[in-house]
Design a protein around this nucleic acid. Structure first.
Lengths: 242, 242
DNA sequence: ACCTGAACACCGTTCAAGT
DNA sequence: ACCTGAACACCGTTCAAGT
């Protein structure tokens, strides 16, 4: 007789899994691997505990022996991604290194769209993993090395992190989606030029900027770094407009 | 006999609504009013079509005669909020007016936390309401007035909008939540100073910056404006680091 | 037309049970 | 201990029906 498992004559609508999953077939690491793959491929909205279990070929409740629930699983997935962060090699002046560090964080985020959304929506209530804390510490060190005062360093860091999250979010949600880009193009082309003269006039440039998401991040980063450098050359904290 | 409605002797677990809602009791505007109130009070996560219907005292399916579904209702709610935007009065130099316009947008967003999340998660596939488009056009006009080239104006606008969204998100998710602030305080206090020296050293300043979310926005905005002003004084597009 | 409840196909999670 | 299915309390939405 063929080796293929022969008890059922033809598979009815039921899922493919036939028997109990063997005892050691699961682990938190394996679960997280599949969860991140599912998240990257299908997106956060399509993710569910049931879908993840099916992807693993186990019953839904098997997941609950490794994670208290969906939230805990998501936090573990997020930490797994953050742990993968490796700071860029330290070369050049303090601001060049700061620039490189920000870009690395931004790339980490855009590379994991679903995890970015998790991060953006987190209330910051939970502990972060060491690598994330270390990255933060390193950026603060660079800002201090540049000569910024205590308060300026703290606030400049806040500015960089807010811009990085906002930027990565936009890239993931629109720049990286062909349909979204196409919709943007159509919308901007349909605008009545007499009511929105500048928008219509700058349409090609706006489109180009939207298509090249990564470049846009670096462009904005440089604007902020320009302000930070100005801060570094002043004795007191002052970046007020007038 | 008392006036209170007398058919039932004692109300069983069922909801309070007793009879059919009268014919004209509903309207898209009324639905949106309640939806926005619910969204602001309970948050996006607690919102559901069923909860909204109960809040309105109608059956769930009544909502579907006014909106095709949840997405359409959310888009209408978002547009209602965006339509409430009134640009600040035009006074001062171009950069002062740009600053004021950004702050107004930021305040609009932080005032409607749930709608902000909707906006941050939107793929940008859908049309925006006129007021939002007009605000965008006005900002581009100011950047051009400042002397920025076509490409610089487009990209500077992108930078401002990315920072504004990222900043508003952070404020809504952590700065405005006492529990989140408290968690942040506890976390930062528990950090081993020998491993994260700068983070520990700057703990008070980081906390202060997190508590004063709005100030943090203006601080970062000024950093970006500093970069934009530098751009305005140069002939070609150049904000590169070195 | 406007509003309704029942039903369908989902979801996260609890619980008691199998091995 | 590890894994299971059934069940519970949700969800958005379709559908046929009432007025």
């Amino acid at each position: 007789m063929p080796s293929e498992q022969s008890t059922a004559t033809a598979a009815p609508p039921r899922p493919v899994r036939r028997s109990r999953a063997p005892r050691g077939s699961l682990s938190s690491d394996l679960i997280l691997d599949h969860a991140l793959r599912l998240l990257d491929e299908k997106g956060l909205d399509a993710f569910s505990m049931r879908a993840l279990a099916e992807d693993l070929g186990v019953g839904t409740m098997a997941l609950y022996t490794y994670f208290r629930g969906k939230d805990e699983l998501f936090r573990a997935a997020r930490d797994r991604v953050l742990a993968a962060y490796t700071p860029p090699s330290a070369e050049g002046s303090w601001d060049q290194r700061l620039r490189a560090a920000c870009i690395a964080v931004h790339e980490l985020f855009t590379g994991r769209p679903a995890v970015l959304r998790l991060l953006a929506e987190s209330t910051g209530n939970d502990d972060f993993i060491d690598t994330a804390t270390a990255a933060m510490d390193r950026m603060l060190a660079l800002l201090r090395e540049g000569g910024l005062g205590r308060e300026d360093a703290a606030r400049a860091y806040g500015t960089l992190s807010r811009f990085t999250i906002g930027s990565a979010l936009r890239e993931v949600r629109v720049c990286a989606r062909p349909e979204a880009l196409e919709a943007f193009r159509a919308r901007i082309a349909a605008l009545p030029p007499e009511r929105f003269p500048h928008l219509s006039d700058l349409a090609p440039e706006l489109l180009l900027a939207t298509e090249n998401g990564g470049d846009q991040y670096e462009y904005g980063l440089d604007l902020i770094l320009c302000g930070i450098r100005a801060l570094a050359q002043q004795p007191a904290s002052a970046a007020t407009g007038s």
